[in-house]
Amino acid sequence: MKTKLFYKIFAFTFGMMLLITVLAHVLIFMIAPSENVLITSTTVTNEDVLAFSEVDMPQLITQTILKSFPLSFACCMVISLVFSFLFSKGITGPILSISTSVHQMSKLDRTAEISVISTDEIGGLANDINSLYQSLLVTIRNLEEEKDKVQLVEKEKIDFLRTASHELKTPVTELNATLENMILKIGEYSDYESYLPRCKEITEQLAEMIKDILNASRLQMQMEDVPVTTFSLAECVSELCEPYRLIAETNGLRFQIEIIEDMSVRLPENQLKKALSNILSNAVNYTEAERHIKVKLEKSVLSIQNECVPLSPDELQHIFEPFYRPNRARDPANGGNGLGLYIVKTILDKQGLQYCFTSMKSKTGMEFVIYF
């Protein structure tokens, strides 16, 4: 396959070579001698006669050129053809290679690459096209990743709303049934003094759940615009632990804070405090009396340990899902609404922090570790 440019260059080059050939032959005629030349020749005869003759030089040259013209013109045509072909091929070869590779690039073939080895303008053009195509592939890959992230976020939002609707449906149904039975004065429900406080508890539970759902939704939308500051991690942890230490001691728990090495971090401080507060709250709520809670900061690792009944591997797989509560905490009054660790996961993931929540190896309990 040859490009149309090949034929154009070939025709132009061959025409120029033929023109040069014709001009060369015309010049030969123009610069040929135009005077007669006297040629002396000695002829030995018996009479010792010396003979002189005059030759018509223009006619002789013309006859000689005319006799050699077909062969000369044929040789010039062959040379012109060969030279024009090689010149045209040399010029259009790299262009044909660029055209073929660009055609593959138009189909987004990731292996497409222009292999023109030269240092001239065509080589520079090939290198620029290769660089541009690689940048295009990187951009497309980034867009695909962003698209996948957006789809994942949308799916998470839909799942969150579906789960929230299901969680809200249960207390609303219970409240509606209780009120209806009280209106109809069915059996024990006629005792308003007993069931009105229960209705109030359900409404408070609903209000708290709606508040947490709105906070979680707001958190997802505002994470990109949260201001970032540089602060001392040790001071932040110490300030957060103090109220939970007082609550733990009130409940008969042993609360220990161990800060071995401080470090400065550049993160949204309020969001980090929210995540750490949820972790500390879980540690206090799920630790039995006379048990131990330990917060340790060493180098760039923060760990929060609490002695309790360890979660099973199956529970750990779902522990960060919204509204998930382990079997021992199914009662919202005791185990919360299951949004605490979901909020923790959302905050830490947005900030790109590594973390893990596992059973302790040396003791019976759970450990939450964050790597800064």
Rank of each mutant, 00 (worst) to 15 (best):
I61L: 05
S115L: 07
F87P: 00
V102P: 01
S84Q: 06
E35S: 14
P70N: 02
F69E: 08
T111P: 01
D109K: 15
E47S: 06
I39D: 09
S88T: 04
E54F: 02
S80A: 11
E113H: 14
A51L: 11
S88F: 05
H103M: 09
E54H: 02
S34K: 12
M77S: 07
V44R: 12
F83P: 04
L125M: 15
I31T: 13
T40E: 13
G124F: 02
V116F: 05
S84C: 07
S88P: 01
D109S: 01
V55H: 15
V102H: 10
C76E: 04
E113R: 06
T43E: 15
F73L: 10
T119V: 06
S84V: 03
R110Q: 01
G124K: 01
M105G: 01
L71P: 00
F83C: 12
K89N: 09
F83W: 10
S101M: 09
A112P: 03
F83R: 01
G124D: 02
L66S: 15
A51G: 05
G124H: 04
T45P: 03
N46R: 15
T119R: 01
N127H: 14
S118V: 09
L66Y: 09
S84E: 08
S97K: 09
V116G: 00
T42H: 15
E47C: 00
A51P: 07
T119L: 05
S99M: 08
F69Y: 15
I91F: 10
F52K: 11
D48T: 01
I31S: 07
D120H: 11
L108G: 13
F83N: 03
I122F: 06
I39S: 04
A74L: 11
N127T: 06
L81W: 10
V37N: 11
S34E: 06
I91T: 11
M57E: 09
A126Y: 00
V55Y: 12
